[in-house]
Amino acid sequence: MTAKQFFKSTAFKCIVTLFSILLVCGVFLTIMYGFLEVTDEEKFARAVQKIYGKSVKTEEIKLDGLKTSFDYSSVDEAYKVLDDGNYLVKVTGKEGFGGSVTCWVVVIMGEDGDSNPSIDGIMKIVIDSAPGESYISKISQGALDSLASKAEYGKELEGGYKHGSQQKGDDYISTGASYSMRAISNCVNGAMEFVAGYALGIVNADFFADNGFEYLEMINNKKTSYTTSDNVVTYSIETTGNSPAGAFTITVKVGEDGVITEYTITEDGSTATDYSDKVFKDYVGKNADWFKSVIGADGTDNSNANYGGNGIQTGATRSNYLCLYAGLFATANYQKALETPYTGGNA
């Protein structure tokens, strides 16, 4: 085909038409975006209006140098409300329905104000944005108000599913959007943790990570602690979920040479008795090397490839992985735990 034929062909006409329409539409949308963009100031004013029903005086908190990133959330903006002394925090909660949810959360401060600051709970939660959360519209303001009433400082709020699982959390509220509620609960937890760090000066979120403990991925660091006595470390471990298996709570005693002397599952996260029966429980005498031989040196082998040769029955792979990971965490960090007194605040 010659150039002349090409320019007269239907293909050329198609390309020109399509690109012309694209260009016109693109220019139109660009111009319209200039007029219709919702600025951050507008979004903030809307959130304040929703929460207070009027505009209030606020003072922005500079986030530079503050701890704003937590396990399941991160703080985007924070304000002190001058009218009532509370804190208005914009937080993004992870673990939603394939996405994340950004909320405005009002943290209520105690009556003593700045002289003796304390956190009294949550006044209001307002959703700011929820990209990718198809069922976010199922969460009514009533459900958010109910979630806010369940929030207490020092307690991890679980208004949707538990972390990493499909099991209902302790503060579960039925909405039809349990994953999104989990992300919103994470927002509330993050907001309280941020205010605790900023206003109360309490920062204990990452005791294990800050002190160089290993194998933390499947360990809930807010519900795990340990004590030491005569070269014996007694761990109280809560794992994360490993969907569909929920979190396990396990007491592990590790004695001389990093060998387990006692291993008791106090809360079984298996979804059914069938799976509970298949959870391997004979961990006494095992050390870190044994755990690494089953779930890999880095603890990330979430398969059951090495179960058979180590006497572990397959059929409850997810639950067994959590129990193995807890054992690996306990044994591999034995020396570290002996050297580092626990000051994480979960004991």
Binding site: T10, K13, C14
Partner: peptide
């Protein structure tokens, strides 16, 4: 103006533009 061969992509572009505009509004 729209050739038959590319009518569906053109329709989609027009509809997507209108939807985006409606979302902005």
């Amino acid at each position: 103006l729209i050739p038959n061969e590319v009518r569906i992509p053109c329709y989609i572009v027009v509809i997507a533009t209108l939807v985006t505009f409606a979302r902005m509004l």
